[in-house]
Amino acid sequence: MSAARFLTPRIVVGGALIAALVLVAIFAPLIAPNDPEAQELLYVLLPPAWAPGGDAAFPLGTDSLGRCIASRLVFGTRVALTVALTAATGAMVLGTLLALLAGYFGGRIDWLVSRAVDTWMSFPPVILALILLVGLGAGVDKVILAIIIVDWTRFARVIRSEVLVVRRRDYIAAARLAGFSHLAVLAREVLPAVAPLVITLLSLEMGIAVIVEATMSFVGLSVESDVAAWGVMIADARRSMYQAPWGVVLPTAAIFLTVLGFNLLGDGLRPALDPSLRTRGAR
């Protein structure tokens, strides 16, 4: 297996974006020029430093409460990435587990999982998340839980059909005939076969989680309203977007770059992880 297969433009660009964001999130206090919560009421709605009227102390300007946009963006990565990692991983574990059981064993468990997926799919995901947050109460931990409860079906649906394909391969029957237990077949033959797809979906789901968190922050159902999160920033800046459009544009760009990074990574990983592309002599 050569590393060159992983050096495609998509993986390199996507990976670099995500790596940079992770670094920003970890070292946020060192990078941020100001305290993200500090309000400088004398300096509200400042434009970015390079624009006329900008102030070098606030590189990307300030919001309507005079808070430093650059610092809030930097700290916002923490919320976004925390939700992306935990919620997407949770949805992956739940969805993949159910998909493996349903696709491999079929029968009643498959019927149950499939009906559950059908029921979930008849909800627009945003609506289900909204209702869950009404029931569970607002908060970023609740948002994570809601994303897991809503989005496990994305994994279950796609991976179940992949398991059905893999299950028909003769090597699954061969493993049974070699004496493998069902559990061993699932763990050693089926799971490795669907793993590239799982990883791809995981990457895409991280992007989706970022969007859902921003959406819920925007509606005010996620973090506390003074916490620096991109959705909160957009909601705050929306009221003054005619005078100060950068307040909306900058967090939007942050969301865009994060989601783009996850999407590029996901798109790029699928072919790179596919062993059927590993051909003779290409070792």
Partner: peptide, 25 residues
């Protein structure tokens, strides 16, 4: 099996394929 394409797990090397039954044991 009829079709080695389908009968051989592409993720296993030859020695791990032919001794799969020992792994099961």
């Amino acid at each position: 099996f009829q079709d080695p394409q389908s009968a051989l797990n592409p993720r296993r090397s030859v020695w791990r394929l032919v001794t799969q039954a020992m792994e099961a044991a």
